[in-house]
Design a protein around this nucleic acid. Structure first.
Length: 436
RNA sequence: GCGGAUGUAGCUCAGUUGGUUAGAGCGUCUGUUUGUGGCACAGAAGGCCGUGGGUUCAAGCCCCAUCAUUCGCCCCA
């Protein structure tokens, strides 16, 4: 039995070129959310299993969470999402924190399931939450932050679409307007979530199955279909439009447009899987036909902090996965060239005095110039190849001649241009080059 | 958990109706003399043909199982 070199199923190795992409994406995400005053936090990857049992949405705990018993007999889970953790942290210090809190994190999360495109067992997810604002100011800001994230990655508005709905509005439609009981409402909600994936006939058939025969005979199926055909809030029946949640959603949509976010729309099929959402929910979809999926989702969850036996704190937040985001930026060709951190490669030629060369190299580093040194005693052409393969554009040649007159050769491997200067001059050239 | 596809060199893949020493391109390494690369030329290394069993005189090829990868379903942070 030979040892496998493959990473664990559903998890990725990050070779330097992969890590470079991840670092670029995360740096962009951090920059975007920090523009709005969000601060980064973090927490352990392990949590007590109780934390996930306490909230609703059972499947994720039973089937999709990595769990184990530790040596002290405690039931432990590897975090499958960040929301319970951040709620726990807020609850623990609820009285001393300065609201509104603006927090973000980029945790790695684990779920036990069959890997597929854009969905792995280990992934990283940007989590952005605002705590302590009851009004729609919170929704407006959080969606603006999400939009900023895409804008800063170079995305144009037609590359993605922000879809909004409201849990309260759907509850009002299901219960008050349609008269569904709880079980029917739950089934119909799950169906609506998938309505764009199903053939129309299949959807209607499943809809029929989800409601009681008597209601079906009184034409309820048609009534539901009429509601679901709504493309705008104003397509809904008057009595539904008068509901407070409908007016609130319209306000948020109008405010987003006023804020210059024109690709935000009402979409009745946006339900969100978790039951802890209490108000407006939203998702961002990639409009590219090869990646037409939800990249980010979120909403208002006012009840979660209160699960810890303290006063509830109104919260709006979202999560954005790294795998789907990477698909997005690649499909839309948004990636810039990602250069190495190393400013120059140093070729110490055969016959050059190594202690003297080393002293010069140390001086470069003291100036903050990142240098990788090639193996001593190699031929110059091998240094060229090594530097090029590593993606390092500049080569510093240190032969005995250069050491004697302290005029070093700096060669740009892309253009072939060469210049001779003292160490200080070359250091500043390299620093300018990196800033450009 | 369910279904489809695919496993041959480091990578991308060829391998005829089963037939003897297993192929290409790219990459890697060496050299074309010792301080100027990317090209070219010459050469080399590198394969239990995913694994186990079966059929056959003979299996990379056919059959079964198994593992892995991948796409989708379920579900979705």
């Amino acid at each position: 039995m030979t040892l496998s070199t493959q990473p664990y199923k559903g998890a990725r190795d990050f070779y330097p070129e992969d890590k470079r992409l991840q670092k670029y994406l995360f740096a962009s995400l951090r920059k975007s959310v920090e523009k709005y005053g969000y601060e980064e936090y973090d927490a352990p990857i392990l949590e007590s299993l109780d934390l996930y049992l306490a909230k609703t949405g059972e499947e994720i705990v039973n089937e999709q969470t990595y769990t184990f018993t530790d040596r002290g007999g405690r039931q432990v889970a590897i975090r499958p999402e960040m929301t319970p953790t951040v709620s726990r942290m807020v609850a623990a210090r609820r009285q001393e924190l300065a609201y509104p809190l603006r927090w973000y994190s980029i945790p790695n999360l684990w779920r036990y399931e069959r890997p597929q495109r854009g969905r792995l067992r280990e992934h990283w997810q940007l989590n952005v939450d605002i705590f302590g604002i009851e009004s729609e100011q919170a929704e407006l800001e959080i969606i603006s932050v999400a939009n900023q994230v895409f804008k800063d990655l170079g995305a144009k508005p037609d590359m993605y679409q922000i879809k909004l709905n409201s849990r309260q509005l759907m509850d009002a439609i299901f219960t008050d307007y349609l008269g569904l009981d709880d079980a029917e409402a739950h089934s119909v909600a799950k169906l609506v979530d998938r309505m764009h994936k199903l053939e129309h006939a299949a959807f209607v058939a499943q809809l029929d199955a989800a409601i009681s025969p008597s209601k079906r005979e009184s034409g309820l199926t048609e009534k539901i279909l009429a509601i679901l055909a709504a493309k705008k809030l104003t397509d809904l029946p008057q009595e539904v439009q008068q509901h407070a949640s409908s007016r609130l959603l319209q306000t948020v949509l109008d405010d987003l447009v006023a804020a210059g976010i024109g690709n935000a729309v009402f979409d009745i099929s946006v339900m969100r899987g978790f039951d802890y959402y209490t108000g407006i929910v939203f998702e961002i979809f990639d409009t590219h036909p090869d990646n037409n999926r939800s990249m980010m989702g979120g909403g208002r969850y006012d009840g979660l902090v209160g699960l810890f036996g303290v006063e509830p704190v109104p919260t709006v937040g979202f999560g954005l996965g790294d795998a789907t985001l990477a698909n997005f930026v690649e499909l839309h060709h948004l990636l810039p060239k990602l250069p190495t951190e190393t400013a120059a490669y140093v070729a110490v030629l055969d016959g050059a005095d190594v202690p003297t060369a080393s002293k010069i190299i140390r001086e470069f580093r003291d100036e903050g110039v990142n240098l990788a040194v090639g193996r001593y005693g190699r031929k110059l052409q091998e240094h060229f190849k090594a530097a090029e393969k590593k993606g390092i554009e500049q080569l510093i040649i240190l032969g005995q001649k250069e050491l004697d007159d302290n005029q070093l050769v700096l060669k740009n491997l892309a253009t072939g241009q060469e210049e001779r200067h003292g160490m200080t001059r070359i250091a500043s050239l390299l620093q300018d080059h990196r800033r450009a």
